[in-house]
Design a protein around this nucleic acid. Structure first.
Lengths: 197, 197
DNA sequence: AAACCTATATATAAAAC
DNA sequence: TGTTTTATATATAGGTT
């Protein structure tokens, strides 16, 4: 895009790399701005120069709002994935506990958030976090209950399907079949979400 | 950049806005990629489409690493700003407490981090955060001590300067001057950083 | 929507200041 | 180091399919 064509690899000459960085960085920012305005979208751009200088651009909302939105999006994505996974898993196992489920859901969410806390976290931060967490606890609980309910519904549906199939088989005169290989009766799924304050 | 020139404002026609979004988004990603490769820099790009679909691009390091780095950078920036402010403030006041200082430093940092915690924060997150915070507490303390020390040094220097000026004045035969307008003796600055576990 | 087609607008490499 | 110049490479608007 200039007098000479450039290979897509690190520019070895330090000077021209710096010049290129300066020009292309401006170009990228401009393009980002144009995209945001023309197409009416939200975006965030973060660039660290080779000398660790920070260049950033974000639309109307502040950078941290967009990053928060990103986090939310990722979490929802993870939740959706986990729920889908659970549904598949449910096709093979008959029983699951809410505790197991809770664990599975929590792990990815925690990892995502914790990475964003920096080493300079402060001691008072803990207190504020506690206060903050108390405030969102109700919504959190609602969310969990919703997930558990969704899976519960799924389980119920599977059971109905099994029952339906069983009925068909029975109707065909194939009674005497027993799915349980040991003496223990199948236990009802544990259905409790633990809430601690 | 095409057959017609486009005004820099929201494209009103929905279809061409969508087409433009698709084309320009790809272009932006490509440019971002080229910048990263050619100039050997780290960057992150987050775009939310009008229909809330997420498009993202980040270099080698994962997105969350870059966001963490961004957070760190911002915190350092804030710290630097606060320190500079403190230095200015010190020119008018004679005494400051480490407690006051700690408060001032903590506020911006907390705000920055807390915004990144989403409503789906989980109850176990609190525990992990506590564990995490314990791990970084030592570094945190070191940081604070460093800041306090820097300001302490600054204060000492100001005192020396005042003393020097005072000496000059005294030497000029202008004794009997008293800077204190009430009976209380000036107290030494409180010098303690509170560490709780 | 996406994929292709030009004509034109923009971006930018290299040079010159 | 930054700005301006200019030749060339790229991006993309508006069509068409």
């Amino acid at each position: 895009m200039g007098r000479g064509k450039v290979e897509l690899k690190r520019i070895e000459d330090k000077t021209s790399r710096q010049v290129s960085f300066s020009k292309r960085r401006n170009g990228l920012m401009k393009k980002a701005y144009e995209l945001a305005v023309l197409c009416d979208v939200d975006l965030a751009l973060i660039v660290f120069s080779p000398r660790d200088k920070l260049f950033e651009f974000s639309t109307g909302e502040s950078m941290s709002e967009i990053l928060t939105r990103y986090q939310s999006f990722k979490e929802t994505q993870e939740l959706t994935r986990v729920i889908a996974q659970e549904r598949l898993a449910q096709q093979d196992t008959d029983v699951f506990t809410a505790d197991e489920l809770t664990q599975k859901i929590q792990r990815p969410l925690e990892e995502n958030n914790i990475k964003l806390l920096d080493i300079t976290g402060l001691d008072q931060l803990e207190q504020q976090l506690n206060s903050f967490l108390r405030q969102v606890k109700i919504k959190e609980m609602e969310l969990k209950m919703g997930v558990v309910k969704a899976l519960k519904d799924q389980e119920m549906q599977l059971k109905k399907e099994r029952k339906y199939m069983m009925d068909e088989i029975m109707a065909a005169g194939m009674d005497g079949i027993n799915n349980y290989t040991d003496d223990a009766e199948p236990q009802p799924p544990v259905m409790a979400v633990q809430i601690t304050w």
